[in-house]
């Protein structure tokens, strides 16, 4: 096995540098402890009792019918933002992801150009956080649902496109070669080989992004776009922790529901 030789030679050096890095990080942590003024206490004066209140509310959220109705309406709004945002993300991510994978190019030069251009656009979309997109879009088009959906859809499209492009590249090559030998062009190889082989992972990742989208849509409430985040913000201003937790539990329930849905779909897609 000629290929094992360089690996066995490289290993000691890798371990050595890993040890060095570990020592440096431990040293940095120790130094940081010196920077804390222990005499004043780590928590602010009312902090400890606030933690107690928060934890108590975590177990006993406010479950009055009125509040549950508010929570359900807010959760619905957040879910709608998340789903609409993800739809925009798919519209951006699928075409750009396919182009960024370079798998439908006719020539090597074409592939390099397509990969470079599409990856640059995707990087631009996802380099800016959804909250920043929200602030920019609210400034541009005002406090409208459109702003929330685009704020979510643009960076998520950038993320989906990048992951899709990599999943489409990393499929087993042997079946693709077999399709080429039976006369299929790259587009047909894509349809009958790459896409079916990458699809289960693409769907699985999209569902994970839907979970993240619900979380992000809730946070968008903070910039005044409504939904669960907005309700949490109001409750926090009133220091009503039991109400805060009602809304947070609603968020947890939604994420669990998406998770259950996704495992259902994945089971059907498994080869």
């Amino acid at each position: 096995m000629r290929s094992e030789y360089p690996i066995s030679r490289g290993r000691p050096r890798a371990i050595e540098s890993r040890r060095t890095i570990t020592l440096i990080l431990l040293g940095a942590f120790a130094l940081s402890l010196l920077g804390i003024d222990w005499s004043e206490g780590v928590f602010r004066p009312r902090g400890v009792s606030a933690i107690g209140e928060t934890l108590g509310a975590f177990i006993r959220p406010d479950l009055s019918p009125d509040l549950l109705r508010t929570a359900a309406a807010a959760a619905w709004q957040t879910a709608v933002y998340a789903v609409a945002g993800l739809t925009v993300a798919l519209l951006i991510g699928i075409p750009l992801g396919v182009v960024a994978s370079g798998t439908i190019a006719r020539s090597r030069l074409g592939a390099v150009t397509q990969i470079g251009a599409a990856r640059a656009v995707l990087a631009f979309f996802r380099a800016i956080h959804e909250l920043v997109w929200a602030l920019l879009l609210v400034a541009a088009i005002g406090l409208s649902p459109m702003a929330a959906v685009l704020a979510l859809g643009i960076p998520y499209g950038g993320i989906l496109g990048r992951i899709y492009s990599e999943l489409l590249q990393d499929v087993p090559q042997a079946p693709l070669d077999a399709l080429r030998r039976s006369g299929a062009s790259e587009w047909r190889v894509f349809l009958f080989g790459r896409l079916p082989m990458a699809l289960p992972d693409m769907v699985s990742y999209t569902f994970y992004r839907l979970e993240c989208g619900i979380r992000s849509a809730a946070v968008l409430g903070w910039v005044g776009l409504g939904g669960l985040g907005f309700q949490v913000q109001i409750a926090l201003e009133d220091l009503a922790y039991s109400r805060v937790w009602t809304f947070l539990w609603a968020l947890v329930v939604m994420v669990v529901l998406v998770d259950l849905w996704s495992s259902q779909v994945r089971r059907r897609l498994a080869p």
């Binding site: 087993p172 079946p175 079916p196």
Partner: peptide, 11 residues
């Protein structure tokens, strides 16, 4: 051409 194996699209 028919190859040794792993030639079909599994999904």
């Amino acid at each position: 051409m028919i190859a040794q194996q792993f030639d079909l699209v599994p999904n």
